[in-house]
Amino acid sequence: MSKPLGYYTNSTPGDDTLLATLQDKYGAAFEKISKREKLVILTALASHVGCQLEGDCREEIFTIAKQMIEQLTIADQTGIMEAIIVQIRWGQNFVVEKQESPMQQ
């Protein structure tokens, strides 16, 4: 069973905030939002947060992501998402500096 949003956020029941409104409408653990809808929210938030961070993304990471999509089961893919979310929230931040292409050297 999922924990309520307040466990993961600074939300307190009864607050007059977006999180309180969402909990009222969709449940304290978003139980009234489908798995597909949760993935849409996750995708949008991940994209937004990623754009706020410094550094670049290595080309090989896109290849790795494609391989994961093609070769891993849905269960393994969601497990990887969970592991990455924990690492993003609580782990160290390795920053990839912008790499010069051979034409710029």
Rank of each mutant, 00 (worst) to 15 (best):
V40S: 10
V40G: 08
V40Q: 15
V40A: 13
I41N: 04
L42G: 15
T43K: 10
T43C: 06
T43D: 10
A44F: 07
A44P: 01
A44I: 09
A46D: 01
A46F: 02
A46M: 05
A46I: 07
S47W: 13
V49R: 11
G50Q: 08
G50N: 03
C51Y: 14
Q52A: 13
Q52L: 15
Q52H: 06
L53P: 00
L53H: 10
L53K: 11
L53Y: 04
L53V: 00
E54M: 03
E54G: 15
G55P: 05
G55S: 03
D56H: 09
D56F: 07
D56Q: 07
C57G: 04
C57H: 03
R58P: 05
R58I: 10
R58H: 09
R58S: 14
E59F: 01
E59Y: 08
E60W: 05
I61N: 09
I61H: 08
I61G: 00
F62K: 04
F62P: 01
T63H: 08
I64Y: 09
K66N: 14
K66L: 13
K66C: 04
K66A: 13
Q67I: 11
Q67W: 10
M68Y: 08
M68H: 09
M68T: 04
M68W: 12
I69D: 08
E70Y: 02
E70W: 07
E70P: 00
Q71T: 05
Q71V: 00
Q71R: 13
Q71A: 05
L72H: 01
L72E: 07
T73H: 02
T73W: 02
I74K: 14
I74Y: 13
I74P: 07
I74S: 14
Q77K: 09
Q77H: 03
Q77C: 13
Q77S: 12
T78H: 08
T78M: 15
G79Q: 05
G79F: 06
G79E: 09
G79H: 05
G79T: 06
I80F: 08
I80E: 06
M81A: 11
E82I: 12
A83Y: 10
A83E: 06
I84F: 04
I84Q: 04
I85K: 05
I85G: 01
I85V: 15
I85H: 04
V86E: 07
V86K: 07
I88L: 14
I88Q: 10
I88W: 10
I88P: 00
R89S: 11
R89P: 00
R89L: 15
R89N: 13
W90P: 00
W90Q: 14
W90I: 02
G91L: 13
N93V: 14
N93M: 08
F94K: 15
F94E: 15
F94N: 13
V96T: 13
E97L: 03
E97G: 03
E97N: 04
E97S: 04
Q99M: 14
